[in-house]
């Protein structure tokens, strides 16, 4: 059993891309005080949207735009139900994810007559990969850092942008204020609902990017339930990092590697595939346990007066 470690690391970074977007999408809602499980379904819808727009528009860029538009639209649906309709956010998201699972198959069937994948009926488009001059020639590093999808580099930029956005812009400040004390924000005339809608819009764009990566980079078609829990994994990643952008990205990277490990082992060993498939989910569960234990111990120590 030989494993190509360099390819593995490159694969890990690649697999982390949709997770980073998902984590940032969940993060912006969390900063505004909302636990948005709907990212899962939003990404799934965006993935299908990207493929449809690309096929009918005849261009990968129209596809990318389509993914973003669908991400935005689905974000607005959840925002409308929970903010304007005042439905419980958990229930809204569960219901929405349910609709996304069935709805994507339904739409796919109407357009292609297929129920499992669009690969036969739709032309496949791929978001270009970028070779970085100079760096691509460095051994090892070149193979890892260079030649990734455009969206992978965009994910890195998105992390920095999110940090800057929350700290230095007016909307960022208002989002944090709403998340921490909505009544205070409301009392100075900030519309909590409007801030909620803005957060969901940003969340939608990020989900769009995540979905576009899934159906135009990870693979080049849409298939039934292809997101497969990545939205939830992103959600857990930002939860582990307490809603901080950089930490969330690092946690996503960790999960990306688990995902890569699972696929690498599936391709290169004959270990039962079912157990390898469990890896990313088990890793998430363990990560949740570990972060909670750390948080609880820290609090206990302070309360027992040992921190002094």
């Amino acid at each position: 059993m030989t494993i190509d470690w360099i390819a593995f690391i490159a694969e890990g970074i690649r697999m982390a891309t949709p997770l980073v977007f998902a984590a940032l999408a969940a993060l912006i809602c969390r900063q505004a005080g909302m636990f948005n499980m709907g990212v899962e379904g939003m990404i799934l819808c965006s993935a299908l949207g990207a493929v449809i727009f690309a096929h009918y528009g005849g261009s990968v860029w129209i596809g990318l735009l389509g993914g973003i538009i669908i991400g935005l639209a689905t974000g607005m649906v959840i925002a409308f139900a929970s903010l304007t309709g005042k439905a419980d956010l958990y229930l809204t998201c569960i219901a929405f994810n349910l609709m996304a699972t069935g709805g994507t198959v339904f739409v796919m069937y109407l357009l292609t007559g297929e129920k499992s994948t669009t690969s036969g009926a739709f032309r496949s488009y791929q978001i270009p990969t970028i070779n970085i001059p100079l760096i691509q020639d460095i051994p090892v590093l070149g193979r890892i850092v260079s030649g990734q999808s455009l969206l992978t580099y965009l994910a890195v930029i998105a992390v920095a942008f999110m940090w800057f956005f929350l700290k230095r812009t007016r909307v960022g400040l208002r989002i944090r204020a709403v998340g921490e004390n909505p009544k205070a924000a409301e009392s100075v005339g900030i519309s909590v609902n409007k801030i909620g809608y803005i957060s969901f819009a940003i969340c939608g764009v990020l989900c769009g990017l995540s979905g576009a990566f899934m159906s135009m980079s990870w693979v080049t078609f849409f298939m039934k339930n292809m997101v497969n829990g990545r939205g939830y994994i992103g959600l857990s990643a930002q939860n582990m990092a307490n809603g901080q952008p950089v930490g969330s990205a690092l946690a996503s990277l960790l999960f990306g590697f688990t995902d890569a490990l699972s696929t690498t082992l599936q391709n290169q060993t004959n270990f039962p595939v079912e157990f390898l498939e469990m890896l990313p989910y088990l890793a998430t569960i363990f990560a949740i346990i570990i972060t909670s234990v750390i948080a609880i111990n820290k609090r206990r120590k302070i309360e027992q007066g040992m921190a002094k």
């Binding site: 309709g85 229930l91 809204t92 349910l98 609709m99 709805g103 069937y109 109407l110």
Partner: peptide, 14 residues
């Protein structure tokens, strides 16, 4: 396709 029912189900919950 029967999948459209899940959409209906979601609308009901909402």
């Amino acid at each position: 396709p029967t999948e459209f029912v899940t959409v209906i189900q979601g609308i009901i919950i909402l």
